[in-house]
Design a protein around this nucleic acid. Sequence first.
RNA 1: GGACGGUUAGCUCAGCUGGUAGAGCGCUUCGUUUACACCGAAGAUGUCACAGGUUCGAGUCCUGUACCGUCCACCA
Length: 909
Amino acid sequence: MQELEKSYDASKVEANIYKQWLDSGYFNPDNLTCEKDAKHYNITLPPPNVTGTLHLGHALMLVVEDALIRFKRMQGDRTLWLPGTDHAAIATQSKVEAELQKKEGLSRHDLGREEFLKRVEAFAQNSHSTITAQMKAMGASVDWSRESYTLDQTRSRAVKTAFRRMYDLGLIYQGLRIVNWDVKGQTTISDDEIIREDRPGKLYTFRYSKDFPIAISTSRPETKVGDSAVAVHPEDTRYTQFIGKEYDVLFCGTKLHIKIVADESVDPLFGTGALGVTPAHSSIDWDIAQKNNLPHKQIIDERGRMLVEGSDLHGKKVLEGREFVVEWLKSQELLEKEEDIVQSMALAERTKGIIEPLPKEQWFIDVNREFSLPHSEISGIETGELVSLKRLMRHVVESGQIKIVPEHFEKIYYHWIDNLRDWCISRQIWYGHRVPVWYDSEGKHALPEEKTIHLARHAQCEGNAANILPGPDSKLTDLGRNQAKQLADNLRGKNITKIIASPFTRSQETARIVALELGLPEQQIEIWDEVQEIHVGNLVGKKEDPNLHDFAQAQKEGTGESLESIEKRVQQSIEKLESLKTEGSVLVVAHGGFNAVFMATLEGKKKEQYVAFRTKVGNIPNASFTTLTIVQDPEDSNLRQDNDTLDTWFSSGLWTFSTLGWPNNTQDLQDFHPTTLLETGYDILFFWVARMVLMSTTLTGQVPFKTVYLHGLVRDSDKQKMSKSKGNIIDPLDMVTKYGTDALRIALVFNTAAGTDIAFDEQKVKGMKHFANKLWNIARFVMSNVDKVEWSHKPNTDADREILGKLQATINSVTEHLEHYRLHEAAQSIYQFTWHEFADVYIEASKAQLLDETNKQNTKEVLFHTLITTLKLLHPFMPFITEHITSILSERNLRKHTEPLIVSKWPEA
RNA sequence: GGACGGUUAGCUCAGCUGGUAGAGCGCUUCGUUUACACCGAAGAUGUCACAGGUUCGAGUCCUGUACCGUCCACCA
């Protein structure tokens, strides 16, 4: 027997343990042996942005989610933790742009859309590899076979479908609005992407002209050439006499028509109490203009230059324009006051460029419009009931269908909803989902359409009847011909207008029978090579073995078709289907193996998934079919697609269900939606959590998740936000290298409550490394004293009884705390027990007991039982070391069961 | 301006449904007894921000004050 090292070295075991878990397949719920009525428990990973690497905040997220997932998996739930990444449109694009500028001195326009997007894709790929490697290092037990990306094909279908459906509901509209235009980034950004910075500025007070009755104050005199009104408070007695009057003035060489209007939003105490209304360059002014039917005139362009035809101002930069106007005011003796003030400037979060409010055609989601909810499983709201998005979002939390932990965030959520304005979803950037709207020459809209396809397997052929793998020429049997008729019967009323068949005889025959039965002319049958069965090479004619996955076997022997080739064919057939024009729906008559891959691809699963499908489920029955949805873009060379892309949160808003194959009604969607838990940082409650609620309730009629758990932000030891510029960033992998993953993991949740920020302290991680070492040595002690266990632990001494009692109390409290998301309490409880009860008290007592013949055996058993239970309780927090010790116990034949700890049974509370 | 948190041992924080305060780190003293010095034993430090109130009893509930922090809105 190999001597165990005196101290635990995490770096030697972790990678190996993770590989064992991967090989076991236990991260995938399809491979778990659960009770028939096992509960489903699933978390969809908040997808990290592909903008670089994971930070400590991500590490915390992974730790919390992994701990809960491992806990539930051990409790016997059918557990799914679905991973993925987010394309993070603006963030990623601006990162690549900055790099491009720095390294090559080029802008994205120099490269062109296509070439630039290639660069971004390459960058995203690179980030993706780094991120997945980091997640593996953290021990995340995610199901990689279901990994998703917010910009991949399956998610793209979901985005187009979502857009189309919401457009049809009247929730998505195009409109001219004042948007936040980022001059530097050349794009619109949302209110949430703005940061404010105090900067010194000047407040000018003046009149438009000598005879104008009211003086106004502004910090942006250059915009005043776009004014069409002066607004005053309706009860401001200084000005009431002027309300409704109109004036023509010549301001700085430009003719203006100014109307005096009353508006409640004007603060009589600010400046002169009169506000010059510039509808095109201020959202408040825009609102006032709308209310009073005032015209707007754009006088600043997208590049931040003055747009005043026929004036000396034209073409000047904004700041030059300001100086010009001020000089003019001075020369005309119109300037009454010039004060120094501090202005809070609106800047774009990503580019730090100044925000110029501009009127632009944008796509919006209307949050107030009432619409008839197409489908509802939400209690308190009927299918077809008139609701607004705001009401939906509020209702599901108010009614308790979504719980937020910690609870006080519910108030913040309501407050946000109450102040919510229409959501601008279009962006003038290139990286992202392109707005799925096409325009004809008259500007009319065309949108993608959902198409139904029925994917069938051919009827029984001679090869099937003989239970061998058939070649291309195998004909239908009599039974097969009847099955084909039956298939046609089942498809009646589905309005099939086109049939696609593979070149194989059995498929063509089936197709012809169906066509005949449905009265469809034979010309409507198309033969596609792409949909033929996966080649099994020299296994053709051999006996089919249900225990052997024939395609995989043929691949292994080198005579079968490669996975790459199959995937390519499937991909091509999907593309062909998506551009196939026909009035009704399409029937594809293909093959068992091919169909399995086809469905998995459409649902966005990985190849492991359909290989597993084939081995587990076996063949799809002859002549059975599945109904699937694909999305067809409008195709007409006269149509021009919108140039804008969608806000990244549009696609991440669909995340809980797009990752499960929506809009197809997949088994995953039925099993795992609504998801059980959403765990994320409180900083994206509005950006993301609220938007998922909006999208999910509207499109699926379900809440996206039942519980939201919000964790705090990880800050540095001085409670400062970690950022590159401060140079206080700590790379989680550095901590992993130094102290081991387990130490980092438990340190992150130890003594930190949900929703509160964490001051990260390296000392704490170090302490937890010591704890790991303590556990290691407890195990060494137990193993050195326990050779054979009778599995009938009978306490015999006071010490025995006491430790078992404490152990049970610990099981209860850890379980209870975990059930209620109090990970910090759970971790503390098991830490306390392990070190200060088990090690300090019982192990010390056991030393004497082991020397005493009457107590020797019971002591061994209590030691062993306590160790194995401790390992289980610690597993969610410290998965590597606990699994490692368990595997040594198994090797030494000390355990009754030898299954890995990850799927061992959680101790009964 | 609005909202939401926080204020507990030297530091970082926990304290779930109210019952005379806990953890980690740090500190002091002692101890190399073959699981562990990445250790053990013993120990010190708190009118739980302040002022009222409810209660037999409040760190825990209510009201107010002060300070710190975060978010949202506005800043013409």
